[in-house]
Design a protein around this nucleic acid. Sequence first.
DNA 1: CGTGTAAGGAATTCTGACACG
DNA 2: CGTGTAAGGAATTCTGACACG
Lengths: 106, 106
Amino acid sequence: MAEQASYKYRKVITIGIVSELTGLSERQIRYYEERKLVFPERSVTGNRKYSFEDVELLIDIATKREEGVQTYEIRQDMIRAKKKQKLRSPLLRGEINARFGIQKDR
Amino acid sequence: MAEQASYKYRKVITIGIVSELTGLSERQIRYYEERKLVFPERSVTGNRKYSFEDVELLIDIATKREEGVQTYEIRQDMIRAKKKQKLRSPLLRGEINARFGIQKDR
DNA sequence: CGTGTAAGGAATTCTGACACG
DNA sequence: CGTGTAAGGAATTCTGACACG
């Protein structure tokens, strides 16, 4: 009766719908992947699958781009943000596990 | 910076992915729609779009079916459950509005 | 009743490339 | 650098129907 509840992080949205949700063209969305800004999963046959989190990230990227920020800069900012996260993250591990389910090493 | 947050209810998942998520065949999923058990939205060109809520509902339906319950019975149960909801629901309206966004009549 | 399947067609997605700036 | 577009092909989805039980 619990299921998983991590709707935000499940990669289940195809690129066409992501395009509608974000207002970005498919070309743009694929290009941002090429620039290492988003990391969709792939279906067995190669179709991209995104999460709601990805959609929100893409909206943020779109805003930055409108402000003239280059993809390279956006990427650097993301890397910096990720480093900061690591500094205060250890305490949150339990929460993250709850979010993504139990995965016992592997 | 808030967006909408109703990930569970947004209809954004195509039938192929719903099939993977639920273990049901596309044929079954379409049939349950025919029997009024699920109500996907449609893209402009007619493709079905489901929410995570729909996915969970379909999983419940699959369980019922395995127990031998007919779709007609499942539907009746759903209607009954919905009626009960109405009896205790008025107080929850604010929550529902928050969930689905402001829609001022129309 | 519930589900599989073949049929034919339309829409979706993918990649690599050329274009422009 | 960032994005549009035409190209060719493969995978996805759709509907209506026949089949079986």
